[in-house]
């Protein structure tokens, strides 16, 4: 019985408080590189912002399609829900583009296909950036 408070103390010590990392990670999601900027890593913020923005813009210029969540068999669910999460991870870029009415249908052709992948990749780069922000915020990384 005496061990329980000790274990709880250890667990709470291992888990950093939300207030320490959540604002930076949320800003990092909404504006690519924003989390790094908030944590005063301005150079890294600028490069990550540029990488996500350019990847997203190339995807749009290649007329890539956005995923919308669909369920069915496992393969469909993973591809469409995963793709949607990847798109959503671009933050403001995705939200603004949808808000402006971009609705490219998924058509055949390698350029469209690359465009779709570029749009998802932009979100995935931002996920990498968000993980980096989290590690910097909790002091695991400089």
């Amino acid at each position: 019985m005496a061990e329980k408070p000790e274990q709880q103390e250890k667990a709470s010590a291992a888990r950093p408080p939300l207030s320490k990392w959540l604002p930076a990670v949320l800003v990092g999601w909404l504006v690519p590189g924003g989390g790094h900027f908030l944590l005063k890593r301005k150079g890294r913020a600028a490069i990550l912002f540029g990488a996500v923005l350019l990847c997203f813009l190339f995807g749009l210029l290649m007329r890539g399609a956005f995923f919308s969540p669909q369920t069915g068999d496992l393969f469909t669910t993973v591809i469409y829900c995963g793709g949607f999460v990847g798109n959503l991870a671009s933050g403001i870029l995705y939200l603004f583009t949808k808000w402006m009415g971009y609705a490219q249908p998924d058509v055949a052709g390698h350029v469209h296909d690359y465009g779709t992948k570029f749009l998802v990749a932009a979100g995935l780069i931002n996920v990498l950036a968000m993980v980096d922000v989290y590690e910097i915020a909790i002091g695991k990384k400089s």
Partner: peptide, 17 residues
């Protein structure tokens, strides 16, 4: 060209993070 661009963006992000 598309693959080269893709490789460039991902490499930059991987290196930085």
């Amino acid at each position: 060209e598309a693959s080269l661009l893709f490789a460039l963006f991902i490499s930059v992000a991987m290196g930085l993070t």
